[in-house]
Design a protein around this nucleic acid. Sequence first.
RNA 1: GGUCCAUUCGUCUAUCGGCUAGGACAAGAGAUUUUCAUUCUCUAAAGAGGGGUUCGACUCCCCUAUGGACUACCA
Length: 537
Amino acid sequence: MERQVRVRFAPSPTGALHIGGVRTALYNYLFARQHNGVMLLRIEDTDSTRFVPGAEEYILEALDWLGIEIDEGLRAKKGDSNLQIEAVGSHGPYRQSERREIYHEYVRQLLDSGHAYVAFDTPEELEAKRAEIPNFQYDARTRMQMRNSLTMPKDEVERLIQAGEKYVVRFLVEPDEDVHVHDLIRGEVVISSNILDDKVLYKSADDLPTYHLANIVDDHLMQISHVIRGEEWLPSAPLHVLLYRAFGWQDTMPEFAHLPLLLKPDGNGKLSKRDGDRLGFPVFPLEFHNQKDGTVSSGYRESGYYPEAVINFLALLGWHSTGDQELYSMDELIREFSLDRVSKSGAKFDFEKGKWFNHQYLIRKPDEELAEQFMPILLEHLKIQKLEDSKIDKSMVAKVIGLTKERVNFVQELWEQVCFFFVAPTEYDEKSLKKRWKDDSPQHMREMLGLLEAVSEENWHKSYEKQDENGNTVIRWHLDDIIMPWIAGKEYGVGVVMNAFRICLVGAARGPHIWNITDVLGKEETLRRVKDALTRI
RNA sequence: GGUCCAUUCGUCUAUCGGCUAGGACAAGAGAUUUUCAUUCUCUAAAGAGGGGUUCGACUCCCCUAUGGACUACCA
């Protein structure tokens, strides 16, 4: 019988959720959904010294924003604008700091079965030892020279514990054994137990277990079927296998899959927070204000990325299907994803491609939706408090966005593309003038003004479909029928006249098709801009 | 230093022994356009090196090199 797929994402609340962590969460989620399994979220806060307030909320909010849904454990409460955390499921509590008693019980079990022992060596003593002996390791070769329950009489150990002496619990690793770890991505990994040290399982410093112990106990108790985590855990996977065995849980031990790392875009090494600052891209999903050290980190959401784009981008960083498809919805990813198609080597983080993904999602959005998103930015630029106070019409905003969205990667970039629709030019781009404003241009504009004056309000906006010489259907504007014959008759150059006209309306040689501009501006505004330009240039 | 993992265009990757090595991002060129863009077309760009196995190797094996991770009372 196949056992139910239960995977977990288990971040530490030590700061903002790193983008690599987001990808780990995503792969877990895709795997869970594909197998109709359960996606569980557990908080691994066994390091009390590194806890950062707000990190837990941040993680849940980020996953919520990205559409990575949590079935069990801690998650963001739905339908609440202020983030509320709720715990669902019967395997709780889902914060390791709230599971102390559980760990005590299992540490006891290991101690009683002889798989672990008590050690009194202080951090200072260990540090001295490491300084003294190169490559010192607390293991089978050295443990008998240390201060622990293996080397001290039982009553002495008892006495020290009673006296309140600080101690840790260490895992007893038997030497000379090849430990096999089966990895779904890498296959069989074999490590000699000789290179493993007697890891601390329970810390004296904050009366909490270390990651290794808590992780195994929780994964077992929460019936995790697959552990999908970053490659940085691969070296300690043999230890985890040994731990499952020591508990007698080898039959229900989860499958392992160690994901390749996300690397720096340039140079070498793991992607870090600093790389983002240095190269100008976010490494976190959401902006984060770290209350502990006062730093602010930029986020994908605040930078204008769509969650779908971030998901799509991240999914393809380390995984790819057989075909050439680049754009995937979450549902498609759930259908197509498989762990055996995850690459084995680390992926350099190419944020240029991330922008491209955002562009792809942006141009597919309806103009009305983009207008809605752009409105606050527009009002801010126009220094308007409330939309009702202005003459701005939402359908007009949607229209100009439709004309320009192909040119941008982010909604906030739209302003630069559409600003002249809202604000008449007061100065004129020098380069454009030099190239496009000729001695005859004022004369041309004056004549054109006359022609345009005569066009009725109705005809101003009129256009119709027409076949061009290649048989393609093209849009022809009524204004073409007025202006083109005039240019031809006077033997002016079309480019000369139209570019001068464009400069009057836009202030530079850029923007969408000219009749789209006049259509949006309307007759009155168009004529005013031409007249203004004639007095200024 | 030790252990483990990895290695196809600049980057992300396809190829599950038959390759004229495909796609995408980025780059470059051209075409279209009354502007700027868009769009379209094209170009350049790769199997780390050396040994095997095989009729045949990017694909399998070994060695070397390079890169990465880990090596805490951090996760």
